[in-house]
Simulated scan of single mutants.
Amino acid sequence: MRISDVLKLKGDRVATIDPTRLVRDLVVELGEQGVGALVVSIDGRSIHGIVSERDVVRRLRTDGAGVLDLPVSAIMTADVYTCEPSATVEELMEVMTERRFRHVPVVVDEHLAGIVSIGDVVKHRIAEVQLERDHLTAYITG
């Protein structure tokens, strides 16, 4: 299965935030959007970074509540790993596991086209395994 298949089922909507917004705004957006990460973008198409709940918590631990008044750009990850829709679920699952991140923006022609979480990847991999099991069971019993 390809990432494009995941996006067909999930949709291509991506929650973004401007890098100049405050971390306190980020926290509100994460909660309102019901997501674990936002792509940092000034126009909703380009990728300037990514910022997650983990980034906020880690900076709160080291810097205290003052981090809430910093711009998102101060805590975001600027070097963002991305993938194309043609990547396979297996490839992305391996990269996400090895590099220990949970969200990967999907790009087409260097523009934001979607985002995939580790939950999305696992969900679709489980569906594949169940389908294979059903086919094998039907083959054996048929």
Rank of each mutant, 00 (worst) to 15 (best):
M1C: 09
M1A: 10
D5H: 10
K10Q: 07
K10D: 02
A15T: 14
T16L: 02
P19M: 03
P19E: 00
T20I: 05
R21H: 03
R21C: 02
L22A: 13
V28S: 02
G36A: 05
G36C: 06
L38R: 07
V39N: 05
V39L: 10
H48Q: 09
I50V: 14
R54G: 00
D55N: 13
V56Y: 01
V56N: 06
V57H: 07
R58K: 05
D69R: 07
P71R: 13
V72G: 03
A74V: 15
A74F: 12
I75M: 06
A78T: 15
V80Q: 04
V80C: 05
T82E: 05
E90W: 07
E90R: 11
E91V: 01
E91D: 02
L92W: 04
L92S: 03
E94S: 15
V95C: 01
R100V: 04
R100K: 10
R102S: 09
V104G: 08
P105Y: 11
V107E: 00
V108Y: 03
V108W: 04
H111S: 10
A113R: 13
S117Q: 04
V121C: 01
K123T: 08
I126R: 09
A127C: 07
E128P: 14
H135V: 15
L136M: 12
T137C: 03
T141P: 05
G142N: 11
